[in-house]
Amino acid sequence: MTIRRSDARTAGKKSDRVVTLIGKPDCHLCDDARIVVEKVCSELGVSWEQRDITRDEDLHRAYWEQVPVVLVHGVQHTFWRVDEDSLRARLTNRRP
């Protein structure tokens, strides 16, 4: 299951970066990560999606010990805890 998120600032814009949050239901770290991802992506006008490892066997196999996992344009950025400044820097090409 994929949930795509965007707002009025990203509607109609083509973003060259997509953030993917991989998590699972009833995961407090996933809830915390979602708040950070949603905030940073909204501020920067970057689209993001959420994927559920309980609904995708390949994702479950790859990431079950690391959720939540954040991918930036398909490349793993972080797992467990999402640092707002680090994600912002990655999305603006200012790697910390």
Rank of each mutant, 00 (worst) to 15 (best):
M1V: 15
T2Q: 11
R4W: 07
S6Q: 10
D7N: 14
R9S: 11
R9W: 08
T10M: 09
T10A: 10
K14L: 13
K14S: 07
V19Q: 09
T20I: 02
T20A: 01
L21P: 02
G23T: 05
K24S: 05
P25Y: 03
D26H: 09
D26G: 04
L29V: 07
R34T: 04
E38Q: 08
V40R: 03
C41K: 01
S42E: 06
S42K: 07
E43D: 10
E43W: 02
E43M: 04
G45L: 04
G45Q: 04
G45T: 02
G45D: 05
Q50C: 03
R51Y: 04
D52N: 15
D58W: 03
L59W: 06
H60K: 14
R61E: 13
A62E: 13
Y63R: 09
W64S: 12
E65M: 12
Q66Y: 10
V67I: 15
V67H: 00
V67E: 02
V67Y: 02
H73F: 03
G74K: 12
Q76E: 15
T78W: 06
T78A: 15
W80G: 03
D83A: 13
E84F: 09
E84W: 07
S86C: 11
S86I: 06
L87G: 09
A89C: 08
L91G: 11
L91M: 13
P96R: 12
P96Y: 08
P96K: 11
